[in-house]
């Protein structure tokens, strides 16, 4: 009995690879696209941060320019109350009293309420 031999021309190729189609682009293309999107996002983020800083600067300077006017009004009101308080004390006690051992203007922490509404 002759030996069993391969068929002439050899065996056909054994299919050991999966036969699935590779969809889409090369991975490096996707990496590139992601990089582009990220760069654009970071660029916009940087631009908006700068614009936000400038908007904050604008707001800050608007307040800086207004501060003296508002402070002057408040100070005048405080001085008015302070002088009125002093005049009342003088009326009541007959002497000028000094509460603090200091020349500085101290904003009072409490107010004496009049018994009836002042007009």
């Amino acid at each position: 009995m002759p030996q069993d031999m391969p068929p002439t021309g050899g065996y056909g190729a054994v299919q050991y690879k999966r036969n699935l189609p590779a969809r889409g682009f090369r991975p490096s293309v996707y990496l590139g696209i992601m990089g582009a999107i990220m760069s654009y996002g970071f660029y916009k983020f940087g631009q908006s941060t700068r614009e936000r800083n400038e908007l904050a600067r604008e707001k800050m300077w608007a307040r800086i320019y207004l501060t003296p006017a508002l402070q002057a009004e408040e100070d005048r009101d405080q001085v008015r109350r302070y002088l009125a308080d002093k005049a009342r004390e003088k009326d009541l006690l007959g002497t000028e009293t000094k509460v603090y051992h200091s020349d500085r203007f101290v904003r009072p922490t409490f107010a004496v309420t009049p018994e009836k509404e002042l007009k």
Partner: peptide
């Protein structure tokens, strides 16, 4: 409103 209204 009990505020001091004494003027300057």
């Amino acid at each position: 409103n009990l505020i001091d209204t004494t003027p300057l």
